[in-house]
Amino acid sequence: MSCSLKDIAEDLKLSKTTVSWVLSGNGNRRNISIETQELVKKRAREMNYEPNLLAKSLSKGITHTLGLIIPSISDLFYAQIAKAIELEAWKNNFSVIFCSSESDPQKEFDLIRMLKQKQVDGLIIAPTKKNDNQIKQLIVEKYPFVLFDRYYPNLNTNYVIINNEESAYNVVKRVIAEGRRKIAIITTNSYLLLMKMRYNGYKKALEEAGIKVDENLLIEVNVTDYENELNKVLYELLSHYPDIDGFFFTTHILAIETIKYLYKHFDNVTKRFGFACMHEEPLLHVLAPNLKIARMPVQEIGQMAASILIEEITMKQEGIIKESEKVGIVLKSTIIE
């Protein structure tokens, strides 16, 4: 059982202040004898003393804790980034509190408030983007935070994203190069800027190849119930347009479910259809070896998001505030064929 400074002081018949100075490393500066310092440290070990790190941190104005809010911890993309963030934080003596918003703006709002109440030093957020009021409030409060995967181009914030439009263009272009002419796009959360950019990349690749963009081939499903919705919309899509010969998926989770559906209803799936997808998932290589993938630099995204935030926290601790000098990073994906 752990003990307190008071317990040690009473046991050694010393003042609580003396014990505190010794255990905080200030014994020499306070002219406490070496013998007394050794005695206090020895007794603290024997009594299983453990310092209250939270109280100590709060007294210094820093807890060495980061808050991370992502749409879903079960999504491999976000799980990989979370791991990279934790590793970078650990290298810098920070720990991370993980939270999942489930793409719910109200839950995201509540999580931001909760993490601030827990005195985290800063936040890393993949925002729902349905409401920017909370982000604006963080800016007003000069609260350290970094956005990743999604960002607000009209707000002056730190962010780390990828080249969404260029990545989508590059993978769709490769499917077209296989001779595919009727390529459907399966997407979700079209209100998100990154999804709009991925659609623009898809559209640009088609137009460049002289293929008319058919809005009837744009299918959007609700991310919270995409597995059930996809069966219905794919049946309707392929019934009306049986000559579809390719698919572009704006996220890997849609790719997996769609390709599984195709295997249930068609023969020679990888010969009949060409596929392009944003982000890599190991299962996809098995389901569709011909899949063109824009591989996200998840390690870099996580590492940079954490390092940008930690640097801002450090500058704030040192009294250096540079409101106009926010960091915006756009990373490139790698095309896998």
Rank of each mutant, 00 (worst) to 15 (best):
A79M: 04
S57P: 02
A84R: 12
P71A: 04
K41W: 05
L87Q: 14
P105L: 14
L138K: 06
W90K: 12
E86A: 05
I135E: 04
Q106T: 15
L87M: 08
N52C: 00
K56A: 09
R43A: 10
Q80T: 15
V96M: 02
N48Q: 11
S59K: 15
K136H: 03
K42V: 06
K83Q: 14
I124T: 13
K136V: 00
I97M: 08
E38N: 15
R43F: 10
A55M: 08
E86D: 09
P127G: 02
I125M: 03
D132N: 06
D121K: 08
I125V: 01
Y49R: 06
R45P: 00
L115W: 08
I97E: 06
E88V: 13
G122A: 14
L54Q: 07
S59I: 09
P51T: 09
A55Y: 08
I62A: 00
K107C: 09
L53H: 00
S59W: 09
A84W: 06
L76R: 06
A44D: 02
L54N: 05
L76T: 07
K118Y: 14
I62R: 04
M114K: 13
K56R: 13
K130E: 15
E108V: 02
P127M: 00
I112C: 06
A89E: 07
F94H: 02
G122R: 14
Q119I: 11
Q106G: 08
G61M: 13
D121R: 06
R45Y: 04
K91S: 14
A82H: 05
S95E: 04
L58R: 08
D132K: 03
I69Y: 01
A82M: 02
P51Q: 07
Q117H: 07
L76D: 09
E46K: 07
A82C: 02
K41T: 05
I69S: 03
T128Q: 11
G61P: 06
N52A: 01
S103Q: 15
K42A: 11
K116A: 07
S101A: 08
L87N: 11
L53I: 05
G122C: 11
A89P: 10
C99M: 12
K116E: 13
R113T: 08
P105A: 13
Y78F: 15
S59L: 13
Q117G: 09
I135C: 04
L123Y: 08
Q134P: 00
L66V: 01
D121E: 08
K129H: 12
A82T: 05
K118F: 13
K91L: 11
E88F: 14
R43T: 13
A84L: 07
D104P: 14
L39D: 14
G122T: 12
L68E: 03
Q119R: 15
L53Y: 02
S59N: 10
G61H: 11
F94N: 01
T65L: 03
L66G: 04
E46I: 04
V120G: 07
I135P: 00
